[in-house]
C-alpha cells in the first residue's frame, strides 16, 4: 500500500512535468484530469492506511469535481474559443522542462532540511508536493494564454491537497468542500472571461 501511494504521488509530479513539456492545451487538460485521478487514488491510499472515514468521501468528491466536472467545463470552453496550442512561449519547451527538473532538485534540498517529523508516507511526499507547487507556479508565469495559466493554478491546488492529506490525515471535510466549490466557481468565472476575451478581442496582453 505504501509502495502504491508512492507510485501515485510520483505520477502526480510526472504529469506536472509533462504539462510543462507540451504546448498543446487539450493534452494539458487531459493531463490535469489524469493528475487529479492520481490524487484521488492517493487519497484512497491514505484513507485505507489511516482508516479515516472522511477521506473516503473526499476521494469521491475529488473524482466527481476534479476528474470529471472541471475538465468537462474546460473542454467545453476550449471548443468555443478554438485554440489548439500555445503560440509564443516566454520560455521554450526544453528549457521549461529542465527548469521543472531543477525546481524538483531544489524542493528536494528544501524538504530534506525542513522535514524532521514523520509524515504519512515519508518526507518524499513533501518533496513531491513542493515540486508540483513550484512547477504550477512556473506554468502560470511563463505561459501566455489564459488556459495554461488556469491549468497551472489547478496544478498548484492539487499540490496543496497532496500536502494537506499527507500532513494531517485529511483536512476537515467542510474545508475540503469549500475549497472544491471555490475551485469550481473560479474555473467557471475564468471560462467566462476566456470567452469574453475571445469575443471582444481586447488587447490586454492576455490571450484567450
Amino acid at each position: 500500500m505504501v509502495r502504491l501511494a508512492e507510485l501515485f504521488s510520483v505520477l502526480i509530479l510526472i504529469s506536472a512535468v509533462l504539462n510543462a513539456g507540451s504546448p498543446f492545451i487539450k493534452f494539458g487538460i487531459k493531463l490535469y484530469s489524469f493528475q487529479s485521478l492520481m490524487l484521488a487514488l492517493y487519497t484512497l491510499m491514505v484513507a485505507l492506511y489511516s482508516n479515516t472515514s472522511a477521506l473516503y468521501l473526499s476521494f469521491l468528491f475529488i473524482i466527481l469535481f476534479k476528474v470529471v466536472i472541471i475538465p468537462y467545463f474546460l473542454f467545453n470552453t476550449l471548443k468555443r474559443v478554438e485554440i489548439k496550442r500555445e503560440i509564443d512561449l516566454a520560455l521554450g519547451i526544453p528549457e521549461s522542462v529542465l527548469f521543472a527538473g531543477s525546481l524538483t532538485l531544489l524542493s528536494n534540498i528544501i524538504a530534506e532540511r525542513v522535514i524532521k517529523t514523520t509524515v504519512t508516507f515519508g518526507s518524499l511526499i513533501f518533496t513531491i508536493s513542493l515540486a508540483t507547487f513550484l512547477i504550477g507556479a512556473m506554468l502560470m508565469i511563463t505561459r501566455k494564454t489564459l488556459f495554461s495559466q488556469i491549468i497551472g493554478f489547478l496544478t498548484i491546488d492539487n499540490a496543496i491537497f497532496l500536502a494537506g492529506n499527507s500532513f494531517t490525515h485529511g483536512m476537515p471535510l467542510l474545508v475540503e468542500f469549500g475549497v472544491l466549490f471555490d475551485l469550481l466557481a473560479a474555473v467557471l468565472i475564468l471560462s467566462l472571461i476566456i470567452i469574453h476575451i475571445k469575443k471582444s478581442s481586447l488587447k490586454t496582453g492576455l490571450r484567450s
Partner: peptide, 23 residues
C-alpha cells in the same frame, strides 16, 4: 525531438532523486 528527450531526462532525474531518498 529535444522536447521528448528532455522529458525523458527529467523523468530519469526524478527517479534518481527517489533512489537517493531510498524510497
Amino acid at each position: 525531438a529535444p522536447n521528448l528527450l528532455s522529458i525523458a531526462f527529467i523523468i530519469s532525474l526524478i527517479a534518481m532523486i527517489l533512489s537517493i531518498r531510498g524510497v
